[in-house]
Design a protein around this nucleic acid. Structure first.
Lengths: 156, 156
DNA sequence: TGGTGCGGTTGACACTGTCAACCACACCAC
DNA sequence: GTGGTGTGGTTGACAGTGTCAACCGCACCA
């Protein structure tokens, strides 16, 4: 993705983007923040934890470049990105709390379970994007792993 | 990281790297394959699953750029990278099998547990690198999450 | 009516990955 | 020994990139 092509496709000059963003990274940070906000909205619109996390995985697999952008190596702290992250985290905590209320998840600090769950989901998605889950004698998918994990917590 | 600086720092011309690698991505793939082989060696040298995974996390956090490289967006299938991945996967399966033998891990197909464990580890590391684990009211670390997860499997 | 600022422009700059051409030298067949 | 070949080095070019400076038109408000 080049800044000059952004201008080209928008029908403006190669420097027009600089009238709206400080530099390339700032533009990308805005795109990332929007995608992360989309993740948050996804989680907010679901009531079941496992369903919500699978929807998140599907979204990430549909737009791999955006997913990588969201968790990419930023050289500065974007306020928008931070706000979207807060929203997503709050939505996840709500889902975990609800599941605990339904006794589908063990008691204890919700943030601990939430961190575990988002780690599994994030790791499974990223491994899948890198092609590490499809190979081997027993290929699997992020959705499958997320389901496995939540089921394990429910049963455990 | 620019190819020209590789030459500069090696005390050769800006085109010398092309005598050893097809292009920039090929060079990076070789670096990535070496780092992934290092992960594999790390896992092979440990006997305890949790200890091994924590060592992996420490290594990744010590060399974040290499970690990102290993699971980065490759435009071709590198043979070296594939071989290193196979070695790491085999080492992980061995550790999981051993833990199951010691009844520290539930029975069942080792690949299922191995996939869950590497997902948690990978996700926790990547989230930590992106700064998503340090924020919030209850910050945590990849090592902590890995320990949490393995303990949960042991107890569950 | 004049000034200000916003979004657009062109043109330059240093730098990048990559390619083509050329070169020195070790090494082997004869 | 001599000639040919291949390997690792060189320089020089090319298109394309992010970024900066300067300039410009025009809506808008005091």
């Amino acid at each position: 993705m080049t800044l000059r092509e952004v201008g080209r496709r928008s029908g403006v000059s190669h420097n027009a983007p600089y009238k709206h963003f400080l530099d390339k990274e700032a533009l990308l940070a805005t795109v990332a923040a929007r995608e992360l906000a989309e993740y948050a909205a996804l989680l907010e619109s679901e009531s079941d934890l496992s369903t919500a996390m699978r929807a998140y995985a599907r979204r990430a697999l549909r737009f791999p470049a955006r997913f990588r952008l969201v968790y990419g190596p930023w050289s500065f702290d974007s306020i928008e990105l931070g706000q979207s992250a807060d929203a997503a985290w709050a939505a996840l905590l709500r889902l975990v709390g609800a599941s605990q209320g339904d006794a589908k998840l063990p008691a204890g600090p919700p943030s601990r379970l939430a961190n575990l769950i988002r780690s599994v989901a994030h790791g499974a998605i990223d491994l899948a994007l890198a092609g590490h889950l499809a190979k081997g004698d027993e290929p699997t998918t992020p959705e499958q792993l997320i389901d496995d994990f939540v089921a394990m917590l429910t049963a455990g």
